[in-house]
Structures are given as C-alpha cells and as structure tokens.
Design a protein around this nucleic acid. Structure first.
Lengths: 372, 372
DNA sequence: AACCTCGGTGCAAAGGTTTGCGCACTCTGA
DNA sequence: TCAGAGTGCGCAAACCTTTGCACCGAGGTT
C-alpha cells in the first residue's frame, strides 16, 4: 500500500527538514524578504513581474506563512472564539456552522468552547480565548463574565443596553404566537407554562435576559393582555439544564393539581419532549385530551406521536447574521473607525409557527410535510 | 447599569494601554525575563521565594502570556484541529464535545472545520489547519487528502493499514446484531438494506472504509452467512448526504418491486427517519406490516410512531477515546519517543441494540424508557 | 544643468517568549 | 587557602513575519 504522499496536490518540500520561511523564498527568488512578504500580499507596489518570480519560488518550495509569527507581528490572530453552553445541542451547532461559513469566507477560523451552562467555565473560556488573541467573540453567554475588550456579539442569551451587539430569537413574538394559537384558535383558557426556573443560580448570574426568562415574561404579558389567569401552579419548571427528565417530573406534578390545565406551552424542545413522554405515560391523548405546543421545533417532530406543533427558529440565518455583525465590527476596528454604527446592532429574528397535531389541529394532509 | 468591569475577577491592568509583557513583570519583580518565564513555568531552578515575587508581580499586572509569541518560539500551538463533515450532525457534535473535554484538560484548544463531505473542502481545511501549526488532528475524513505530517487520529471514516490511529464504531458487529435480530427473533428472510451509494464520487475519493461502505459489506456478509438472499433490488440507496428526502424516495421505489421486503435496515438515523416517513405516507403499519430498524439511534426515537428499534452508539466514549489516543501521540512526540506504540492504535467501539417497536417487538412497559 | 518625483526595493526594528549556555557567588572538604 | 561542586539567575539568540523609512535610479520639470 502506497504512502498517502502520492495524493497530496501541489508541490511539497521534498527535504523534510524544516518548513521553508520567507527567507528561503527570498533567496530563491533573488529578492529581499520584505519584497516576498509584499508580493504575497498582493501589494500594488510590487510589479507583476517580480510578483511572478516570488510566487513561483514560493510554490516551488511549498512555502506557507507561519501564522504564529504573523499574529505576533500584526497583533491579530484571524481567530474568532465561539462560546456556547453545549455544542452538542442542535441549536448551537447549527448557529456555529452557519457563522463559521461566513467567517471562513472572510478568512477567519473558529475556536469553540463549551461552558456547560456554568459562569465559572465561561469565565475561564473567555480568558483562554483572550490569551489566544482572538480577534472577536460570538457568545451565547451562560451569564458569567462579560468581555469588555474587543468586538463581541451575543446570540441567544442577550445583553441589552450595553452597546454590545446581539442577535437573538424573537422570544416575545414567538410566545405571543403560541398563546394566540391556543387561546383564539382552540379557545383554551387554562394554559400552563413549562420552562426552567427564572433567576440566577449558584452557577449562573445575570439571567435577566436569558431566553427562559424572556419567554416566561412574554407568557405572562400576553396572558395578562388577554385577561387569562396565570395561577402559580400553572407555572411548571424543569431544571436549569433543560433536561427531558426534569420536564417529565414537572409535568407529572402539573397534571396532579386540582384543576389541571387544558394546554401546555413548553419553553424549549427538550422540555416538550419530556412533557410528551410523561403525558403519554399518564395515558393522555395529546392533541385531544390536552394540547401541547413547543417553543423550538424538535427534530423530526412531524414523526412523533402525535406530530408536534411548534415554533421553528431560523437557526442558520441567526448564525449568519451574528457572524456578519461581528465581521462589521472587526472591519470597523481594523480601519480605525470605531463607532461607525451604520449597521443595526441589535436584531431579533422571528419564528414561524408550524401547526401539526399536538395542539389539537386536525390532520390535514398529514404526511405531506417535506423533510428538513 | 454598571459596566461589565465590576465583575471580572482578579486584578486587571488599570491603565488600558497595552497588555503587560514578560519584561514588565520582570521589571516589577526586579528579576530578568528568563527568570519570570521559568518561575511561571514552575521550573525547579527557581526557588520558592523568587517565584513568589514573580507571581505577585504578574498577578498585580494582570499578566497573561502571549500565546502567539510562545507558539512561534516553541513551534507548538497547543491547538488541535478537528475536521468533520458537518458539525450540525449530532454524532460529530457529540464526539467533538467529548474529545474537547479531554483535550482541554490537557491544555489544548480546539479549532473545528466542516468539510461538507467534500474532499476539496477537506484538503483546504487541512491545509489551513497546518498553517495554524496545530499540534494534532482529529478527523472524520470525507475521503480527501490525508495529512502525513503530525499526529492524527481518525474516527468514523477509517484509514486502515497505514499506521495512523483510528477509533470507529463497530460497523460489522452492529450490522450483525441487526440482521440477527430480524432473522432469528422475527424470522424475516426478505430483508432490504437502505444505505448510501458505495464507491467514490466526484467529490470524494477513497471510500473503501467509509461507514456506509463498511455497513453495506457487513450486511452482505452476514446475510450470506445465513444463506439469505440479497437481490439487487433489495439494495436501496439515498444520496451521499444521507438526506431524509433521498431515503424517502428510495424507499418509495423499494416498496414497488414485485416482491417487496418484509424488513428494512436503514444504515443511518436520517435514512431511517426518511424511511419511516415514506412508509407512513404509503399507509404501512410499521412494526406489523413491515419491520424497520436503524443503525444509529435517532434522537427521541422512543417517542416516534412507532418507537424505533435501533443501534445506540457510544458517541461520547468514542470521542474520549479518540482524544486520548491523540494525546498519547502528542506526548510521545514531545518526549521524542516516536514509535512507542504501547497503546492500541486501532479501536472499534461496540454498539448496543435498543429494542423498541418498529421491528415488530411487543410493547413491553412501553413508556418506561428513561430519557437520554 | 540642477532639482523633483516616484516607482521599486531593501534594511532593520519590532513583536513576546523560551532556553542553551555560562557567569558569579556560596559552600564544603582537604 | 584553594579546588570543586552547587545554586541562582541573566544574556542573548532564535522563532518568522510585517512595515516604517530610506535609498536608488530613471524620467520629467524648470
């Protein structure tokens, strides 16, 4: 079996000694290192002919710039840090990927860090990233230390009134949609909310604008606006990790109250899944005995039993917007024009209601839904 | 609202001029930069007292090492590159996260790149990573350029017989489990395979040991071993991206053959989901009219209609093993002992069969399954 | 003919850290 | 008193690139 060598495209330094440096290229091309550097930059001061020579020498040697050296000199790493609670959660992974696409097109690479929803973790993550001299930050904060150095944009958990940019799902709008659907289309009045506990914990601080909090507030507001009661026992909470198990537990209790709700709004997809599991275990016929809708669309939720009515987020779009916002900041900073706030710095991206069956809606062309 | 400043723990350079350097610390502590460097390294040559002074000065100044400079000097970036087809796919995200945990514990950070299942993309990703001087690589290759410089371990798609380490799911064993269950427990003889086309495409090369290929081969082998027929029309293929839509299409055709299969094995979770969607659209009662089992467990597959029988991978374990294997290589290299092959360099991690209903098994304690 | 301009290029410094080498000093034992 | 062995620490090179400044020669201007 041949070595993998035979496949690598382009010329490669045959003497496996040492990566060639600018000096080597300069020697081969018969010019100075500065000329090589400039030629490779596409600097217009270097005429085509010289550039030609340089490029030839460079490719002949298989020359690649040493990024550490460059970073040291330019004080810029072309690295963007992304910090998320948990990259294994579909939302964060999708946002990351989308953001990454636009960032890479601009020449940046991405380093990820997980905070495990822990402010401490987040603090060290952010510090590590600073040590790395990342040029910018994309963060779904867990409520910890907020960086005050360098361009940063938040997504998911939001930090308003601080001048720092953010883009986040339209939690208020989405919740309104959900409540309206339940209340006006289906006539529910006993609507419960299944979320995670509001307020800070030992592991997190500053939760005022966490998605969970925003959704709960919005729920209260629109219920209030419709003169619908929100008795405390209709507020069910899972745990801070949004686990299915905790939701299951919470729903079990919720359904044991004297006058159980006729509809449940789950504040997230995992919560909705937990709720569904528990309701099924308790022999409820979801969609007829009780309505269940979800903020955030679980994957393949059209195949669930019953198919779940939910809000679809535009995760990819959100990631792209965030990245572009960051790129703007990066560019602005580079060209020295700091407060060039021409682009909007706070964005909410809307959510779409996907009506399926768990809310009680009739099965219209049940299987026609195209896959994601 | 106060600035975020009030939260940052530890002292911070109050004069926002410039990050302090070794020189600054040295000046403050009244020693030379080399001493500072060594003291901060915990070098035993520096006695406790001196170290004390240095550490105090460093923290007073809020000193943090400049990683670019260090990388330049040491020729090591403490960066590990992870390349995957698509980070938004749960498997890769989970593996990444697990690997990340062990890597970070060892002081490495992680930079991710997506290849979009395209050999070209992969090649440039790998090159970019090399430019970054990553110390090691964790790659789920899309069949492109194989790096021959520096420690690398593969997962998922495997490169055998090359001395390069890998850890990958036990595709053969898993497929055996699946076929046996269908054939001996349920007595099926007309078993179809739903996979993705084997062999290279324009976008990928060297697919011999891609998971899809391994699974197909295994299917053929165990069917053969059991003297079960594998007519060509029982081999259905989606597309190379494993999309649900393509699986749907393939299954639609599969069920139109003269003598349709009584059981289908889907080679991946998305494929299984597509199959399920199509079978439901075609009014089959999955689990009674026809059996469907899946390699790879779809998320919340116990809530599907019907709950899906599937193979559960130990993704986190796989990620951790890969990372540890890489770490071993990194250490070995650092201490100069290159071929110190004390640890196994090729590992297969087993899969567990989760019996649910789509295979035709009876509903035993249907809702008792604990959430993931 | 003296002066300017300007395109093209090179010199050398700067960026911050690590580390081989060796200096200066203090003990110990003869 | 001195050789020899530690001990504690500093010097300076090396890592590689970018970039301000200056130089040089050619062509144009006055």
């Amino acid at each position: 079996m041949p070595s993998s060598q035979d496949q690598t495209p382009g010329p490669v330094d045959p003497s496996r000694r040492r990566r060639p440096t600018l000096t080597d290229v300069a020697a081969m091309a018969g010019v100075s290192v500065s000329t090589v550097s400039r030629a490779l930059d596409g600097n217009p001061r270097i005429p085509g002919e010289t550039r030609q020579k340089v490029v030839e020498a460079a490719t002949a040697l298989g020359f690649r710039r040493n990024i550490s050296a460059r970073s040291l000199r330019t004080q810029s790493s072309m690295l963007v840090g992304v910090v998320v609670p948990d990259i294994a959660i579909a939302f964060y992974a999708t946002v990351l990927k989308a953001a990454q696409n636009v960032l890479e097109a601009a020449g940046y690479q991405v380093v990820v860090m997980n905070t495990e929803r822990d402010a401490q973790h987040e603090t060290v993550a952010l510090r590590t990233l600073q040590d790395r001299q990342v040029d910018g930050l994309l963060v779904a904060t867990s409520g910890g230390y907020v960086p005050d150095r360098g361009p940063v944009v938040f997504f998911d958990h939001v930090i308003p009134d601080t001048g720092l940019g953010y883009v986040s799902p339209d939690n208020a709008g989405g919740m309104t949609t959900l409540v309206e659907h339940l209340a006006v289309v289906h006539g529910h009045t006993r609507i419960a909310f299944l979320g995670v506990p509001p307020g800070p914990t030992a592991r997190t601080q500053r939760m005022e604008h966490a998605p969970a909090t925003e959704r709960l507030e919005a729920f209260r507001n629109v219920m209030g606006a419709r003169r619908l009661p929100v008795p405390p026992e209709y507020l069910a909470y899972g745990d801070h990790e949004w686990t299915e198990a905790s939701a299951q537990q919470a729903v079990a209790e919720l359904m044991r109250v004297a006058e159980p709700p006729t509809a449940i709004i789950a504040a997230g997809d995992t919560l909705a899944l937990g709720a569904l599991r528990q309701l099924r275990a308790d022999q409820y016929k979801v969609g007829t005995d009780i309505a269940l809708v979800s903020f955030d669309d679980p994957v393949s939720s059209d195949l669930l039993d019953p198919p779940m009515t939910a809000l679809r987020r535009h995760d990819r779009e959100l990631g792209e917007i965030s990245a572009r916002m960051l790129l703007d900041a990066l560019e602005g900073r580079k060209s020295g024009v700091a407060p060039k706030t021409e682009h909007p710095t706070e964005t909410r991206v809307p959510l779409d209601l996907i009506v399926r069956r768990s809310c009680g809606c009739a099965p219209e062309t049940p299987e026609s839904e195209p896959p994601p």
